[in-house]
Design a protein around this nucleic acid. Sequence first.
DNA 1: GGGTGTGAAGCTATTCACAGCA
DNA 2: TGCTGTGAATAGCTTCACACCC
Lengths: 219, 219
Amino acid sequence: MARLPLYLRALTSLAERDVTTVSSEELAETAGVNSAKLRKDLSYLGSYGTRGVGYEVEFLRHQISREIGLTQDWAVVIVGIGNLGHALANYGGFASRGFRIAALIDADPQRTGEEVAGLKVRHGDELEKVVTELNIAIGVIATPARAAQSVCDRLVAAGITSILNFAPAVVQVPEGVDLRKVDLSTELQILAYHEQRKNGSALALTAEQAVELAKAVRG
Amino acid sequence: MARLPLYLRALTSLAERDVTTVSSEELAETAGVNSAKLRKDLSYLGSYGTRGVGYEVEFLRHQISREIGLTQDWAVVIVGIGNLGHALANYGGFASRGFRIAALIDADPQRTGEEVAGLKVRHGDELEKVVTELNIAIGVIATPARAAQSVCDRLVAAGITSILNFAPAVVQVPEGVDLRKVDLSTELQILAYHEQRKNGSALALTAEQAVELAKAVRG
DNA sequence: GGGTGTGAAGCTATTCACAGCA
DNA sequence: TGCTGTGAATAGCTTCACACCC
C-alpha cells in the first residue's frame, strides 16, 4: 500500500515530539488523509490499535517499518551521474530509511573514477558485474531519456526487479519487474493544468461561450 | 487528467519518428496504457479522432498542449538551492515544456548572489517580492524537511496556488491551493515493499505460518 | 474493413456508520 | 464513554463490447 510510507513519516514526526499514543483521527490529520481510510489501511497489517485509546506510536512505527521491509538494508545503484544523479547520490534521506547507495554508474568515460558522495563512479560496461557483486536490489535510472530503455533492459537482464525511473521517457519492462517513475515535468504539467483552470475559467471563454454562459445563468 | 502529459510525450516521440497518424491501439502501446482508457481520456477533450483512421499526431499534440496549458509560459521559483535545487535548476526538460525557471531562492546568505543555471540566487527574505515582481505561478520547494511548511506558507501568502514539494515532509495547504509532492524515499519504500514480497514470500514465514500454509494447501 | 466514441458492466478505492471492546 | 475495526454503501476508475462513422 502506497500510503504506508506517509504514515511512517507522520509517526516519526509524532515520535520526535514525544507523543507516545495517537488516535486515528490525530494521525490521519498529521498524515493528511481521512481517518476511516487510515484505520482501514492499518487494519490490513493487523489489530495494532486499542479501542478507546488509539495506537502506540513506537509500536506502530515498528510494525509499518517491518511491513515495508525497512528493517533490512537495500542496496541501490544509480545509473547516470548528471545533475540529478549527483543530487540523488548526495541525498541524505535514503540511508536513514534502509537504502544504501552501493554504486554509481555513468556511460561517460570522463566521469569514470570521479568520486561522488564517497563512491567512485564506475563505467557503464560494469553494470552487470556491479549488480551481481554488490547484490543490488534496486536500480535508479537518472540518465537522459534516450538511454533509459537500454539501461532498464540491462538492469533487468542483470536480475534487478525493482526500478525507479527519473528519465522523461516511457520505459517498458517485462512482467514481474516493478517500475515506478518520477517525472518532474509531468508534475509541473499537472499543476499547470489546474492553475489554468483556476485563473482562466472566465477569461478563457470565447465571446460565443460567454454569451451562452450568460444566457444559462439568467435561466 | 494526470495521464495527459504521458500521452503528450508519446505523441512527441511519434512525431520525432515522423509518424503522422496513429491509432488508439498504437498510441496506447507507446504510452503504456490500455487503449480503451486512452480513447475515453481523449474523448473528454473532444472528438479529435477519425473513425477508421485514428488520430493525427500533430493536431492531437497541439490539442493536449492547449488543454494542459502548455501554450502559455509559466514562471517557476525554486526555493532551496541544495543538491536537488541545483539539479532542478539545471534540468533541461522544463524550458521545452513552457516552464521557465524565473528565480532561485535560498535561506543561506552564503549562497546568495551565487550564480546557478544563469540565475543569481536570492535571499529568502526576498521571496514575496520575487513572486510578485516576476509574476510567479508555481513554487517548487526543495528545502530540508523542517523548512518546508514555513516556505510553503510564505509561498501561499505571496499568492501562489500551485506548489510542488520535494521535501520529505507532510505539508498542509489551505483550500484552493494545489500541492503535489515528489518524495524520493517514498518511491524507494514502495519498491522495497514489493521487492520484499517477491523474494521473501516463502522465506519470511514463521514456522507456525509454514505449517498453517502447508495444511491449507493440502486442503 | 478499420477504428473511434461511449453506454454498460465490473472492479477498486473511499467513505459512512456503527457494533464491539477497552 | 471513546475509539478501533469493519460490514455496507458510495464513488470513482477501468475495461468490455459494440454501435456508428470514415
